[in-house]
């Protein structure tokens, strides 16, 4: 099966008046179709920056990434057509209705009118938007808004879905809906990157994991591989160990956690 996302040695450095900040430091990963990859880490670990680089919203300082075979740096438009971005921080246009919003995004992605009408109908059913699809977004609840946001992002039916903290701010019912939906995406053969700092929920959902800390992927692989490497059962314990270990080391003596392509393959075959 093809790798829909390939990132190799991604670096992102922000220059600030007080010095350079390495937000992402030599990150490599691959995600194939029908796979959910959990990109896990605390706030500020570099997860969102990684997603933005993969999507081409942000230029990497160095490194390369391809999505669905398209190079992020040289074919950004084709990359964007292949990706759906679902972000908790994404808002909706308050004065448009969910239907108008979906049509607007269909337009941006060059979906034909007929296709768009059909797609709006399907997504409305899938996310149960029927009761408010023609009301202005301003009056919707957080859960409803998140559902509209999901529907909006899938209007162009892309092969790759990037989810940035999709359950943030949602209650149990809302979160469950997101999990069910992610499982459906997997069934449909999409390559999904699921970014979250809620480790337990990720553990249930994802096929493989990448634990990010201070801009680096410190551990990567399936749950079995991670358990073997860390000697811990739960991802939360692994993460706490990692933090403790890294905090005790000075920044200078930290070993670069290179995640080579081979280790990724290892992780996958297990």
């Amino acid at each position: 099966m093809p790798d829909l996302i390939v990132a190799a040695g991604l670096h992102k450095t922000f220059t600030t008046p007080v010095g350079d900040v390495h937000a992402v430091n030599g990150l490599s990963l691959t995600v194939r179709d029908g796979e959910v990859f959990g990109l896990l880490g605390a706030n500020g670990a570099g997860k969102t920056t990684t997603l933005r680089m993969i999507l081409g919203l942000m230029k990497p300082t160095s490194g390369k990434a391809t999505v669905a075979g398209f190079d992020v740096a040289s074919q950004p438009e084709l990359v964007k057509r292949s990706v759906a971005l679902v972000s908790a921080s994404a808002g909706l246009y308050q004065w448009l209705s969910p239907r108008e919003l979906m049509h607007y995004f269909a337009d941006l992605y060059d979906v034909t009118e007929e296709q768009a009408v059909l797609r709006v109908q399907q997504l409305t059913e899938l996310f149960d938007l029927g009761s408010f699809v023609d009301r202005p977004c301003a009056g919707l609840s957080t859960g409803q808004q998140q559902r509209v946001n999901l529907a909006r992002s899938l209007m162009h039916d892309p092969p790759v879905v990037l989810m940035d903290e999709p359950t943030r701010g949602l209650d149990i019912v809302g979160s469950k809906r997101i999990f069910d939906f992610t499982a459906r995406l997997k069934e449909m053969g999409k390559a999904v990157v699921f970014c979250t700092h809620r480790l337990e929920e990720a553990q249930r959902l994802c096929d493989r994991f990448g634990l990010m800390f201070r801009g680096r992927l410190q551990l990567q692989g399936s749950l079995a591989v991670l358990r073997q490497q860390s000697g811990r059962d739960s991802i939360t314990d692994m993460f706490l160990d990692l933090m403790e270990q890294k905090n005790s080391m000075t920044e200078e003596s930290m070993q670069p956690a290179h995640v080579s392509a081979s280790s990724i393959c290892e992780g996958r075959t297990e």
């Binding site: 669905a68 449909m188 053969g189 999409k190």
Partner: peptide, 26 residues
Amino acid sequence: MSLDNDPSGETESSDSPGARAAAHVR
């Protein structure tokens, strides 16, 4: 369409994204 409840929804996903991307650009 791939998102309907029919499991055969893979038909469209199997389209080359490039082909879809190139088609119908406004």
